[in-house]
Nucleic acid binder design. Structure first.
Lengths: 142, 142
DNA sequence: TAATATTCTATTGATATCAACCAATTGAGG
DNA sequence: CCTCAATTGGTTGATATCAATAGAATATTA
């Protein structure tokens, strides 16, 4: 069966499949680690992107995260509801929004960082010396 | 601000963030490519996993995909509704299900494979010689 | 064999993800 | 100015994702 052989090849080599699988495993892992602080791995990443000296608008954030704008809209909601971020109309361009962390958001971010540091060090240990290569490869894709 | 510096470090180095970003970009890319055949990149992967000489049960499939079992339950629904797969109670263990492709599923899979081949070759070209290293790194994680 | 534990899947509720479409605003030409 | 195009987010509908929980069937053990 050539169809079956092709399937074997794809299961072994498809980078998209491998990436989704790794993304799921990593998200679960960091979700678990961050759960005591009430945020997910995705929310942690988003808080980091929003932690800037000056407020950002949504476009650049979505682009940095390689995420659809409407996905970002959705992802902001629980963070705003929980008081971790602020969403304000940009006075200079009333179509846009200015996103920033609240004091509470910075507090949560700071606390979550220590968890991240520990968990990520352990992850890099498991990956071995290839961690930099892996990052580089992922950056090429996204 | 040390908090800001820590954020920069995380944005640059967090493997979880890089993986999610790459996963989103790749999913969009293959979703686009496969759209003419009416399936997504995730459904394509799932069809490949289900394309075996003998039916499989859900547990091993979920494990192979590094996916929660309940996620798999959800993912099977549109495929079954569209007639691409069959879900049957395992007569030897009536808790379990036996999953298999229908003729229609095999037909769709075969057609989608040619798209995958083209798109994946282009992707590997873009990634360069690191494609094998990237795969290896992703496999270590998942 | 009966009671208990384990395994397998489904369901629910919350968030994540994207495409398609829409509304409001701004910008560019005329 | 005024029209029209482009930009910026939001909304909706479908699928994806997981934790928690529940139900059914099997396996274990007393």
């Amino acid at each position: 069966m050539e169809l079956f052989e092709a399937t074997i090849h794809i299961r072994d080599r498809c980078i998209c499949l491998h990436a989704q699988r790794a993304a799921r495993a990593l998200a679960r892992r960091f979700d678990d680690a961050l759960r005591p602080h009430g945020i997910t791995s995705g929310q942690f990443s988003l808080l980091n992107v929003l932690n800037r000296p000056e407020p950002v608008s949504m476009g650049p954030v979505a682009k940095f995260l390689a995420m659809d704008r409407s996905t970002l809209t959705a992802n902001l909601k629980p963070l705003e509801r929980n008081g971790l971020i602020r969403i304000e109309v940009d006075p200079d361009d009333r179509r846009g929004r200015k996103l920033s962390l609240t004091a509470e958001g910075r507090k949560t971010l700071r606390a979550a960082m220590s968890i991240w540091k520990k968990e990520h060090a352990e992850l890099e240990r498991e990956i071995g010396i290839d961690a930099d290569l892996l990052r580089a490869g992922l950056r090429t894709i996204a």
